[in-house]
Structures are given as C-alpha cells and as structure tokens.
Design a protein around this nucleic acid. Structure first.
Length: 296
DNA sequence: TTCCAGGGGTAGA
DNA sequence: TCTACCCATGGA
C-alpha cells in the first residue's frame, strides 16, 4: 500500500466536505464515520483498478492506495481525482463573507461547511443525479449499488464506477434489467451513448470559466434533467447561483423557515433565497443539511 | 389499494 | 407560461 499526501486550502474541513450531502453513501464511495475515512474503488486511465482511502493528515490529507503500486503518472492522476472529488480548487471565502454573522447561518462558517463532495468525473455525478429524481433516497442507493456491478471489480471487493462506454455498449433493456431504474433507464442509456460517441464532452463542464447560465442550459438539454437536477449538478460543478428546489427543500422551508405553517409556493421559496445571490443554491442546501452538519 | 419519493417529458391551451 | 397526464419502481 502506498500513501500519497496532499495539502489542502486554508479553510478546508475534510469531514464537513465528506458529509456535505448523500454522495458519500453512494457506491463506489464508502465512508467510516467513526474513523473519519472516505474510500472508493477507482479505475485509472490505463484500466487498472485501485482502492483509495482518504483521511486527515498533518497539513492536509493522506491518500492510501491499495492495489498495485501506482506509477508517477498514476499518482498524479489519483491526486487529480481527489482534487475533483473534494473541490479543493474552489474558494469559499466570499461565501463565508456573505453569511458571516447571519442569525440563521452563522453555524456554517463555524463548522466550515459549504464545500461539497463531487465524483471524480462529471459523468458519474450526472448519472447519480439522474438516479435521485422522483424516487426515495434509499431507492437511489439501491439503483446505484446495482449500477456499479457493471463496472470493473476490485479483487478484494467492490467495483469501479462503470464507464459511459460500458453502458453504451449494452442493450438498453439489459441495462435496465440490471439497474432497475424504471423510466430513467432509457435516459441513462442515452446519456452514456452521447458521451461515449463523443457528441458530449461533459468533463469539460468542470471548467470554472464556463458561465453557469450556459452550463444550466446544457444540463437541461439532457433527457431527464429538469430544474432540480440541473440546479443540483451546478452545485457539484462549483456554481451556486441557482436553486434546486425539491421535496426536501420544500419541507425544510415549511417547517423551519415558514414556522411549520403552510406549504410555500416555489416562488416564495425563490424570493427568500434570492438575496443570497451567487450563493443562494448553497444556502438552500445548507438549510437541508443543517441537522447533519452543525454538530460535526 | 392508493399514494408518493431529493421530478421530468410531452401535449395542449 | 401553466396545467393535466404519464412515466417504472418499491415502500408505506
């Protein structure tokens, strides 16, 4: 086993990032709340499959790599993947400046929350986001568990996330017989096809220079991605100027902000978060996650 | 049985 | 722009 170490930005909080949303529960991610480690089986560009385990280390993070010892190029690839996963290149100082001292949101800076856990690839984030639509969180986990068995296995257990090429090569009916994604199965197969064929270069969507309005339009152009899914994806891509209002957000707004009174219209919810401007999507998500994050 | 979940596509006004 | 209806799946 090889240990790689990386440094992290000044206000980085490892466990607040891992716990930022449900992604750490979706395989190939796996986490240990007691030991505060995040693991995943990861396939490298040359096809080799390794297992990564991240933990805090003095000055940054330790990345334990199990499997064959990675070459220098592979080490760089692994570090790049971890940078994507933990969004280490994003700066949240302006976010904290916005909410600093706010009566409702002061806890966010105290906990160091805000940075979100992403997947190493945009493809994986798109797939998982699609599997969160119109279903329960438990069903999302089950669909994801079945999906990754289509990826390459790690000898000691687990699977790497399947490539778009792998899914595109399958018959759509066979794919859905395995994943049981319901009507989403056809959308997933179409997404895999458009990426595998080269029609879509979704990995380029991580470019911070891309305007979020442009990205939003591109994401909504994908079958199965509406306002919630596109807003959700924007967050994983580092843009927070859009809301992603789903049933969880509506319930939180009703119970906590609207005093448990009536269910609010989406326009009312939008008006409440609008003053947070480019950070409104993140503030909305922090409301949903408050109970899980504020006592980390 | 019916309803619905971290919704979205489509047709018709 | 808004509404009505449909969509697979599995738990409540």
């Amino acid at each position: 086993m090889m240990i790689l170490t990386i440094s992290t930005p000044p206000h980085f909080r490892f466990w607040a990032t891992v716990s930022s949303h449900g992604w750490c529960m979706l395989p190939p991610f796996d986490y240990d709340d007691g030991a505060r480690t995040l693991s995943r089986v990861q396939q490298l560009r040359d096809g080799r499959v390794v297992r990564l385990t991240l933990s805090e280390a003095p000055g940054g993070l330790a990345i334990a790599v199990e499997g064959a010892a990675p070459s220098p190029d592979e080490q760089a690839e692994i570090i790049g993947a971890v940078n994507h996963m933990l969004n280490l290149d994003r700066d949240f100082s302006d976010f904290y400046a916005h909410i600093s001292g706010h009566p409702r949101y002061g806890w966010i800076e105290t906990v160091g929350a805000g940075r979100m856990l992403s997947s190493p690839t945009v493809w994986e984030d798109l797939t998982k986001t699609l599997l969160t639509t119109n279903t329960t969180w438990n069903m999302t986990i089950q669909m994801c568990r079945r999906l990754i068995t289509l990826g390459d296995p790690y000898p000691a257990g687990g699977y790497a996330f399947p490539t778009p090429e792998r899914l595109a090569a399958m018959n759509p009916d066979d794919l859905n017989a395995q994943v049981r994604a319901g009507y989403r199965g056809a959308y997933l197969h179409e997404l895999a096809n458009r990426i595998a064929s080269g029609e879509l270069d979704v990995e380029s969507w991580r470019d911070p220079a891309l305007p979020s309005a442009d990205l939003y339009k591109r994401i909504k152009g994908l079958k199965g991605f509406g306002d919630y899914a596109a807003g959700s994806m924007l967050k994983l891509l580092g843009h927070f100027d859009r809301l992603a209002t789903d049933t969880a957000c509506r319930a939180v707004y009703r119970d906590r902000i609207n005093g448990g009174n009536a269910a609010a219209d989406d326009r009312e919810i939008a008006a409440y978060y609008a003053p947070f401007g480019r950070w409104q999507g993140l503030v909305q998500w922090m409301d949903v996650m408050e109970d899980d994050l504020r006592h980390l």
